[in-house]
Amino acid sequence: MNHLEIAQTMARLAGELIKSKMGSGFITEDKSSSFDVVTEVDKASELFIRNGILEQFPLHKFLGEEESFLNEKPLEEVLKGAAEEPYLWIVDPIDGTSNYVQGIPGFTVSIALACYGQLQLGVIYDPCADEMFWAEKGMGAFLNGRSIHVSPTNELGRSVVATGFPSNMEARRAVYEGLGRLIEKCRTIRSLGSAARHLAYVASGRLHAFWENGLNAWDIAAGVLIIQEAGGKVTDTKGNAYNLLTTNVVGSNGHLHEPVLHCL
């Protein structure tokens, strides 16, 4: 299998695994705070994806959310080193764990591949909706085999914008501030509980823009490439180009990018 095929296969199989465990009384633990939780299913999903990818590509590097949390090496140091890695897989085994714990549909599996720090492919799978979003650099973006594009909407007043509420309280306060300004300008705001899902929805035209502070590469890397390949734009909240170290992110259909940035 090639890189895209293994990413899609592992995302789908991991999605089936986590969906089968939904509501089964799994163990839930706090990570950095009571706002940030992990389950034994997150860990099992990540190990499953890791083993599947490295079995096919044993010389590749792997960065998973749960492994990174336990790693003594600072994440920033790992991501700076990504610029010298020919192949780095970046994986969130369950994006939207709080949804998952509560039995709310909308969690996703997110898998990206970066080569020398540049995103080459991204796959986001929503097992409850059976929706597979993916993109390869220079090849366009797709949902279940159908080409997707961002919305042509160019009026902020007609837009549906999404955000999330990070576990880090400083980042959460920054989201609140942006929310206070944007809610008066756009049609409505949604929070669906998964950054990857938000980004995929921007790429497919279901949402017009998304912003959130305090994210990490595994939350957004796959979705960033999918938006870009769908004709949209992704930067940090100050308008700087996205890179793997970006934590405060804005993704949009492009037309609304500057108006959203202005509000933030």
Results as ranks from 00 to 15, higher is better:
F69V: 10
V260R: 02
N2W: 13
T108E: 03
A112W: 03
R206S: 10
L264A: 06
K73M: 11
V175H: 09
H198W: 13
D42G: 02
I53V: 13
F57Y: 13
T39Y: 11
V109E: 06
P127D: 04
G64K: 05
A196Y: 05
S167T: 15
V160F: 09
R206G: 11
S252G: 02
R197P: 03
W89Y: 12
V41P: 01
N216A: 14
L63G: 03
L192N: 05
E177Q: 15
E77Y: 09
M169P: 15
F48Y: 14
A241W: 02
L17M: 10
K43C: 15
N154K: 13
D42F: 06
S20E: 00
Y100L: 01
A82P: 01
W89T: 04
A200T: 03
P152N: 01
Y125Q: 07
V37M: 12
G164I: 11
L256I: 02
L244A: 04
Y125A: 06
K61Q: 15
E258P: 09
P86F: 00
V41Q: 01
R12Y: 09
A112H: 05
V260K: 00
R12E: 07
R12G: 08
S252H: 01
Q118M: 12
R187L: 14
N240R: 12
G164Y: 10
L156S: 03
E155Q: 15
L59I: 14
Q120D: 04
E29L: 08
W211Y: 13
R197L: 14
E212R: 04
V160T: 08
E65F: 02
Y100N: 00
P166H: 02
F165Y: 15
F48M: 15
S191Y: 11
L244I: 09
C128Y: 07
Y100M: 01
G205V: 04
N243Y: 06
E177D: 15
K61V: 12
W134R: 08
G103E: 04
